[in-house]
C-alpha cells in the first residue's frame, strides 16, 4: 500500500486531540448546573480519540492506550450502578445522592456531590461504548 502523506493531519491531530480532551474534561465538570456532564463529556472525549484513530491507525492508538474499551464501558456502568447500591447499603433509597460544601485549599468553597461519581461512570461507559462502536466499524475490512 502506498504510504500516505499526512504530516499536516498528524501534527495538527496531536495538538488538537489534547485540546479536545481538555475541553471534554471541562465539559464533564461543568455539568449539573451548566450544560455538560458525563454523557456529553464522554462523547467529546470519544471524538478526540476518533480523531487519533483517523490520523494514525487503530493499532497504534490501541497499543498506546493499553485499554480494552469494552471493559472500560462495563467498568463505567458498574461504577454508576454501584453508587446507587452504596445508597442502599446506607439504608436510603436506591440512587439517592448527597452533596456537601467543603472549603478546599486552592479551590475555596467547593460543592462536592456524590453524583459526580455516578457521572464518572456514565462518562466511562459512553467513551467505552462509542469507541467500541467506531473500532468495530473501522475493523470491518479485515
Amino acid at each position: 500500500m502506498k504510504k500516505s502523506n499526512d504530516v499536516i493531519l498528524r501534527t495538527v491531530a496531536k495538538v488538537a486531540s489534547v485540546i479536545i480532551f481538555t475541553f471534554a474534561i471541562n465539559l464533564f465538570f461543568s455539568g449539573h448546573h451548566n450544560p455538560g456532564g458525563g454523557f456529553i463529556g464522554g462523547l467529546a472525549f470519544a471524538a478526540g480519540l476518533t480523531l487519533l484513530f483517523l490520523s494514525y491507525d487503530i493499532a497504534s492508538v490501541y497499543n498506546n492506550s493499553m485499554l480494552d474499551f469494552k471493559v472500560l464501558g462495563a467498568v463505567g456502568v458498574l461504577i454508576a450502578v454501584l453508587t446507587g447500591v452504596a445508597a442502599m447499603v446506607l439504608g436510603k433509597s436506591f440512587l439517592t445522592h448527597n452533596v456537601a460544601r467543603i472549603n478546599l485549599p486552592l479551590f475555596g468553597a467547593t460543592q462536592l456531590a456524590t453524583s459526580v461519581i455516578f457521572d464518572i461512570g456514565v462518562a466511562l461507559a459512553v467513551i467505552g461504548t462509542a469507541v467500541t462502536i467506531i473500532m468495530s466499524i473501522g475493523n470491518d475490512r479485515q
Binding site: 469494552k70 462495563a74 467498568v75 456502568v77 458498574l78 450502578v81 446507587g84 447500591v85 436506591f94
Partner: peptide, 13 residues
C-alpha cells in the same frame, strides 16, 4: 433489576 445487571457487567469484564 440490578442483580443481573451487576453480574452481567462483572462477567463482561
Amino acid at each position: 433489576i440490578i442483580i443481573p445487571l451487576i453480574t452481567g457487567l462483572v462477567l463482561a469484564i
